[in-house]
């Protein structure tokens, strides 16, 4: 043992030039005196632990804290990986020419003027709408509250479509299931809320289904993600359903997750095959799912009427 100790001390000091043979011998010694259970037993124990964790994660909310804690641990890494993308953005902003900025400024000013004029009309229409609804004594809708968040440029599971945003439970009362939109349309909904970051499932994820209606005629349908970046599919619409190419789809508000009226996408293809029971309808999302950097988190405004079926999903109730 004394000899062994000396030789390990030599390696420690970096004196012995050929450590590989010694190392394997030392490993053999270690194996002889190894403490604790064998690796097979350890694997079995850890496998049991994994299965418990997975079951809890899939079926209950019990280990949300564990995930939150670990997410805080890995957040610095996500932040660091995001930095090059941010630098590129910053460089792009800093090194543009004066003419380009002037052009952009001009375009933005025009767009702003156009949007403001539309907004004037919108305010009028909103007031009128409220009055009409009061006359009809139907449910009143309150305005939606929003919060701006930024996407972190990190990749998640390659099999799914999801993104990380830089807002978490420390920033506001976010909740799983909360809708996420960008300037052009619906992007997805939050699935996990961690202290400083959250993850959201995009509407193109194959596990995402979104209740929509055709803006032109109010026909309702379910838009399901295809797993590719650029299209959704409408499920279970019969061959003679009144859907045409170019139709705009908006959220219908059924299902109580997404507020009604946000644009979802445009129908780009309607394939009717008489042998199949349903039409194959392909939709291109309006939101710039792969290019948006800034996104909006929405708190749907709920009706003030007590009998509203959506009230159970109210974020305040979830705590």
């Amino acid at each position: 043992m004394g000899v062994l100790r000396r030789s390990t001390a030599c390696i420690h000091a970096g004196v012995v030039p050929r450590p590989s043979s010694l190392r394997s011998r030392r490993f053999a010694v270690k194996l002889l005196f190894v403490q604790g259970p064998s690796i097979g037993t350890r694997l079995l124990l850890l496998a049991a632990l994994s299965i418990t964790l997975m079951t809890l994660d899939q079926r209950t909310d019990a280990i949300r804290q564990v995930r939150g804690g670990l997410a805080v641990l890995v957040y610095p890494l996500q932040y660091a990986v995001n930095i090059p993308a941010q630098l590129l953005d910053w460089a792009g902003d800093s090194f543009t020419s004066r003419e380009h900025l002037q052009e952009e400024n001009e375009a933005l000013r025009r767009e702003n003027a156009a949007l403001r004029s539309q907004l004037q009309k919108l305010t009028f229409i909103e007031t009128e709408n409220r009055q009409l609804r009061e006359l009809l004594q139907s449910a009143k809708r309150v305005g939606d509250r929003v919060l701006i968040a930024e996407l972190l440029a990190v990749d998640l599971d390659p099999y799914r479509k999801a993104v990380v945003i830089n807002k978490g439970s420390r920033d506001d009362t976010l909740y799983p299931g909360q809708p996420l939109v960008d300037a052009d349309g619906v992007m997805g909904k939050l699935i996990h809320v961690n202290p400083w970051s959250s993850t959201a499932m995009l509407i193109t994820d194959p596990n995402h289904a979104l209740p929509v209606q055709v803006a032109r005629n109010g026909l309702r349908a379910i838009a399901v993600g295809s797993g590719t970046e650029d299209h959704l599919e409408l499920l279970h619409l019969p061959n003679n359903a009144d859907v045409r190419e170019g139709d705009l789809l908006v959220t219908s508000g059924l299902g109580c997750v997404f507020p009604a009226g946000y644009p979802v996408g445009k129908v780009i293809r309607v394939e009717v095959n008489p042998r199949l029971p349903f039409a194959h309808i392909v939709v291109a999302p309006s939101a710039r799912l792969t290019r948006s950097r800034e996104v909006l988190l929405v708190w749907p405004g709920l009706s003030e009427r007590p009998g509203n079926p959506c009230a159970f999903g109210k974020p305040e109730d979830e705590g």
Binding site: L49, S50, I51, T52, L53, M54, L56, D57, Q58, I63, V66, R67, L70, A71, L73, V74, L77, Q78, V154, L156, D157, A162, V164, I191, H192, T199
Partner: peptide, 9 residues
Amino acid sequence: VLRDTLLGQ
């Protein structure tokens, strides 16, 4: 946690 998959997989 990094890939936001089922915890334990």
